[in-house]
């Protein structure tokens, strides 16, 4: 029984991280139909920003979150306006996918050159403090990771719902042309959406380092994670990302616990393929309207 509870708690911690890492991918997909294959590498850049700050200046990873978000917001805005929009204009959405794939390869290569292909992790002073709650063991690091993920997701949901730019983003997601006719500068909105998306990817990266080790080749895994989260939870909303992320986290830890530690990835890809084949509309029926 305690093993089941422990597995669930571990799954939720990991799931919170998956949710936060995927929410930006989901937003970009929902608003501009672009599949951003460089999403995972942006997550990792966030992790390396946090790593540098902790390593060089001793900044706590949780305090590195705003820095990573600011840096990656700027990166995301420029990336969209400077490259992705051009690719979409020039040819097709498939072309935009290839461009993001190319950029992911370039950035991954750069990360390897700068930081080496070795695994890195961040271990703040409280990394080894833990407490027990009945039969469950919780450490501060993972608890703070889950807390930060949930706070940030709530924050993003609030921004989208209550602020002016949030409403415009949602309106553009629903009716691109109509929003344009209402005087919305769609390109600017796309840029901001990409910036917001990258900022939250960066935030998840900053937290990631204290939960799991990371290395540049992981970027592909984080991109595919995001895709699976969207497949499970639905596209374009923080709540969908939360649902999908938590599910993936639970599936992942349960697989490691009950099938074998080597199988979470195989299980994740299997679920991705099966979801696409059996229920491309997502569990709640709001993903992938255009898949068939």
């Amino acid at each position: 029984m305690s093993l089941v509870l422990q597995t669930i708690v571990d799954g939720l911690v990991l799931g919170g991280l998956y949710s936060l890492a995927a929410v930006g991918f989901s937003l970009i997909f929902g608003v501009m139909n672009v599949v951003n294959l460089s999403h995972g590498v942006i997550v990792l850049i966030g992790a390396y920003v946090s790593y540098i700050l902790w390593h060089a200046l001793g900044v706590d990873p949780l305090l590195a979150i705003p820095v990573a978000m600011a840096v990656l917001f700027a990166f995301g805005y420029v990336y969209q306006r400077g490259l992705i929009q051009l690719a979409v204009d020039r040819s097709s959405l498939l072309a935009s996918m290839l461009v993001t794939f190319g950029v992911a390869l370039m950035l991954r290569n750069l990360l390897v050159l700068v930081f080496s292909p070795d695994f890195k992790s961040i271990t703040p002073s409280y990394a080894f403090n833990f407490f027990t709650l009945g039969p469950i063991t919780l450490d501060f690091v993972r608890l703070s990771a889950l807390g930060a993920s949930l706070v940030l997701l709530t924050f993003l949901a609030a921004v989208l719902r209550f602020t002016g730019i949030g409403r415009v983003i949602r309106a553009t997601a629903q009716q691109d042309m109509a929003a344009r006719l209402c005087g919305v500068n769609a390109r600017h909105v796309y840029g901001v959406t990409f910036g917001v998306s990258s900022a939250f990817a960066g935030a998840s990266g900053a937290i990631l380092g204290i939960v799991v080790p990371f290395s540049p080749p992981d970027e592909a895994l984080w991109t595919i994670n995001a895709f699976v989260v969207v497949t499970l939870g639905g596209v374009g909303s923080p709540s969908g990302a939360l649902l999908g992320g938590l599910l993936l986290g639970l599936i992942s830890t349960a697989t490691a616990q009950y099938i074998g530690p080597a199988f979470p990835n195989a299980m994740m890809f299997l679920i991705l393929v099966l979801m696409l084949l059996v229920r491309p509309a997502g569990l709640l029926g709001n993903a992938f309207s255009g898949s068939r």
Binding site: L94, I224, F269, V273, L276, L277, P280, G290, S291, R292
Partner: peptide, 12 residues
């Protein structure tokens, strides 16, 4: 599956 969904499913 069409377009990117086929592409990603094959990757999977």
């Amino acid at each position: 599956l069409r377009g990117i969904y086929f592409a990603i499913a094959m990757l999977g």
